[in-house]
Write a protein that binds this DNA or RNA. Structure first.
Length: 433
DNA sequence: TCTGGGGTCCTAGGACCC
DNA sequence: TCTGGGGTCCTAGGACCC
């Protein structure tokens, strides 16, 4: 049996753990730039606040209804997520961390009592150790576990846990679920299936296999088998290294000049390099993109440029250099830029990268010393160690740093909670920087 | 008139997830 | 005035190989 453990209203719950005064209040958490609502307490949902609604549309309501509003605090949520996973693993070792607030649990290899009892123990311990409430669905496949989890959360009578196993029980539950609510059915497929009068999960369950394959390819076929209790999606305990890494942000205010864009791109390129080093990868391609605000009626512009690096790299200095050259190629004066970003791709293991024939030091000069690439890697390791200990970007490159004139691109976070679990990193080490 | 039979790699576009 | 930021997989078609 497979379990899906899902943290209830995760970001809201994290904020509540450290501020009990909002335990009973309506709470919302906003996306970056305080743009959209991305998490809501049950009370906020009851007020009709939808997922993804722009904040400005509900700002008045938050005043009237005395709703607590938070900017997203990913340092806090990431840390709390790790604590939840740690607690779960102590009871059920075979775990797939699916997202920041969801894990799949393999109850079969846990060699425990029945899944429901073990699951209840997991929920209790997570609550005790972290203060985060959870819902748990248990079934024979991941897709059915997702459904069971929905039932566990929606229905108060099941106390946050639900086991979905008997065929008749599965069919009667599938009849109550819209096909669009299935894991793997998005807007497009829901619309397409609707044309064939396939509206509930049970309708899809009863479709012929050939129809599903024809209309939804092999992805849909897997979903269909999973609904019938035949696992097609294995538990993936070891997270695979990412194949692309992207860092992008909207600006606090639209930007028209090159200098603040250079600063933003340098900052994003550095973050990409950090993420690469964290997973032990190096990139072969660096892509930079810029875009204007598509919600505005004014003249639009969006463009990107991709460099192929001479050697694969995760050196912040090299990635910044290429990223800035890419920016120079696509920057056009006269536009109101709203967003920019850096994508690195063609990722390879950092220790297996292909040396360039022309890279200095790679031919005939390596006997006694290190190549520049090796030296660079060491330097980056030192920087990472310092920043890990003293806080993000305590040591940084000049290209990332702002002057008074260029700082207006940086993020808006008007409702940020304290770094409750990582606060010591805020202690400045100014003289070291 | 007829015009083989395999492959690989890359990219763009479409679909989905949180 | 104000509208997030990441990712994955699959398929079709084109270029190219022997």
């Amino acid at each position: 049996m497979i379990g899906l453990l899902d943290c209830n209203n995760f970001y809201v719950s994290c904020e509540r753990v450290f501020d009990p005064t909002i335990a009973k209040k309506s709470v919302v958490v906003l996306s970056n730039q305080d743009g959209c609502v991305i998490a809501r307490s049950n009370e906020a949902k009851a007020l009709g606040i939808e997922m993804g609604v722009p904040f400005f549309q509900i700002r008045a309501l938050t005043k009237v209804e005395d709703i607590a509003v938070y900017s997203s605090n990913y340092a806090l949520y990431g840390d709390m997520s790790s604590r939840v996973v740690e607690t779960v693993r102590a009871i059920v070792p075979e775990v797939e961390v699916y997202s920041i607030d969801e894990q799949f649990l393999d109850f079969d290899t846990a060699h425990r009592r029945n899944a429901a009892d073990t699951g209840q123990e997991v929920r209790t311990k997570v609550g005790q150790h972290t203060g985060i409430p959870t819902g748990l669905g248990i079934a024979r496949t991941k897709t059915l576990a997702k459904i069971a989890n929905r039932i566990a959360k929606k229905s108060l009578t099941h106390g946050g846990i639900y086991v979905l196993d008997h065929p008749q029980q599965i069919e009667s539950m599938l009849a109550l679920i819209a096909v669009s609510d299935l894991w793997g059915i998005g807007r497009r497929y829901a619309k397409k299936l609707g044309k064939y009068n396939v509206n509930t999960a049970l309708d899809l369950y009863r479709c012929p296999e050939s129809f599903v394959q024809q209309q939804m390819t092999v992805v849909g076929l897997r979903l269909w088998h999973e609904l019938h209790g035949r696992p097609c999606l294995p538990l993936e305990q070891i997270s695979k290294p990412k194949k692309n890494i992207c860092t992008s942000r909207s600006f606090q205010q639209v930007q028209t000049d090159l200098p603040p864009l250079r600063e933003a791109i340098a900052t994003h390129a550095n973050r990409c390099a950090q993420k690469l080093r964290a997973q032990g990868s190096a990139a072969n391609y660096v892509q930079v993109f810029v875009q204007t605000n598509k919600h505005c009626p004014e003249q639009q512009y969006a463009n990107s440029f991709t460099w192929t690096l001479p050697v694969s790299s995760n050196d912040s200095r090299l990635l910044i250099r290429y990223a800035l050259q890419a920016l120079e190629r696509i920057f056009q004066p006269g536009y109101h830029y709203q967003k920019c970003g850096v994508i690195v791709s063609g990722l390879v293991p950092e220790n297996a990268h292909q040396l360039s024939l022309f890279e200095p030091g790679t031919l005939g000069h390596t006997s006694g010393g290190q190549t520049p690439a090796e030296k660079g890697l060491q330097l980056m390791q030192v920087v990472d160690t310092l920043n890990d200990r003293y806080g993000r970007d305590k040591v940084q490159l000049g290209a990332m740093m702002s002057t008074k004139e260029t700082a207006s691109w940086r993020m808006q976070q008007n409702f940020l909670s304290p770094q409750y679990t990582t606060r010591f990193k805020d202690i400045p080490i100014a003289w070291c920087v």
